[in-house]
Amino acid sequence: MDITLLIFLLSGLALGFALGANDAANIFGTAVGTGMVRFYTAAIVASIFVILGAVISGAGASHTLGKLGAVNALPGAFMAALAAAITVFVMTKRGLPVSTSQAVVGAIVGWNIFSGKPTDSATLTKIMLTWVACPVIAGFIAVPLYLMVRRIIRKAKIHLIRLDAYTRFALIAAGAFGAYSLGANNIANVMGVFVSSSPFTDFVIADKFVFTSVQQLFLLGALAIAVGIFTYSRGVMMTVGQDIVALSPVSAWVVVTAHSLVLFLFASQGLEQFLKGHGLPTIPLVPVSSSQAVIGAIVGIGIFTGSTNIRWRVLGSISFGWVLTPIISAIVCILGLYFLQNIFNQQVYF
């Protein structure tokens, strides 16, 4: 591969690295933070399933991003991913809740504005509605799941020690599913902008399986996520597990499962086809925020169990981020594209 291509892909890989470092904690944070699952077990499981999710099921959500704006030049895609990465970095540094999905969408809209291409308002509306729906649906899934698990545990009269063993196993299984869904849904954030300008070509494995250029791109992005998981997620997992939300391991399982189901719903092409085939309304395949799905699930359980510890101000700042993140990202992207085009003489769109 040309070294220039690799340099252009670096911004996407940096996004992948950040995603692995932060979002793996949504899946395994409580499990690792409380000592239920060892960090290396979590990291291995998360990495394998993130890669599988991205390569096997990553196309759906990327397709929607493509409809929003097909970033057709590699330097343009580089800047869109970089703008998203800068936005995420700055907002995180300032302690504002930020989602990579929202930053990437803002960057694509920024590219559309800069290149004079129209932004599909129907797709944009669909994506933004999905962001709001994501935590709400996670909450609605978490409550019955929580009730069901609580009922089963009480009825089954499982010994506390055996329940602990079952919970560990269930946390690993839910973590694997969560990682798969994260890879499937969020690879669009990492590599989605590069799809239209993918530097790879399809090749056939054993005369049977076609390993598409997009899948190769996603594999590269997923590897960056895995590196992020192995190198930086440990600290975030310990923070999530011990400091921010004190979840019991069983509640953590409910939250991770609800989160994973939501990410899966918004990424599964198979489910989309099934619903379409049965004449049912389909669920848009959109990259959503893993963190906000987790928060939605926790708040759902909190409201249901009458917990008074819900910090509404935090929820307010999340909805504020839905608007602020894409705007900042779009502005950064437009400025970056201007510099890339006029100072570095790069063709940022065709």
């Binding site: 409380t34 000592g35 239920m36 506390l160 020690i161 602990d164 019991s248 391991p249």
Partner: peptide, 8 residues
């Protein structure tokens, strides 16, 4: 040793 039942 086996960090069992962490919360209890």
């Amino acid at each position: 040793e086996h960090t069992l039942i962490p919360e209890f």
